[in-house]
């Protein structure tokens, strides 16, 4: 089967809307199709990776452990926009998983080399 470069752009915070959760579902399926998968977290999307999510009080499923499981599906390209982290006073230590932090110029190149860019 053809291998394409799929990029998932996550720009929304978790729980307030369903997009972060349903994006993860597509990410896992895309990996199952042996595609080249990248995830980008920018704007409020960086909050998806915040450590210490406790969802009992809002009775939502806590899906944040899934980000740690991605490696097991060979999904290792996780990119975070540096400026979005800075604007939210977050550092890499605040995040659930190891990520590659990119500048805006690096992100521009990354966007341009993709075949399919999905955002929710």
């Amino acid at each position: 089967m053809t291998t394409k470069k799929f990029m998932f752009v996550n720009r929304k915070a978790p729980y307030g809307t369903v997009y972060a959760l349903e994006s993860l579902e597509v990410v896992l399926i895309t990996a199952a199709f042996d595609q080249d998968v990248s995830l980008v977290f920018m704007d409020d999307g960086v909050y998806q990776l915040k450590k210490g999510q406790q969802t009992k009080g809002i009775e939502h499923k806590n899906f944040s452990p899934t980000y740690r499981a991605l490696e097991g599906y060979d999904i290792e390209k996780l990119y975070v926009d540096r400026e979005s982290m800075t604007a939210r006073s977050l550092t890499e230590d605040d995040l659930l998983v190891p990520v590659t932090v990119l500048s805006r110029d690096q992100l521009t190149s990354l966007f341009e080399e993709q075949d399919v860019v999905l955002s929710f």
Partner: peptide
């Protein structure tokens, strides 16, 4: 159908 249909059309 399943999400595979989305990925498939992305590929094809």
């Amino acid at each position: 159908s399943g999400l595979g249909q989305l990925v498939e059309v992305g590929i094809q």
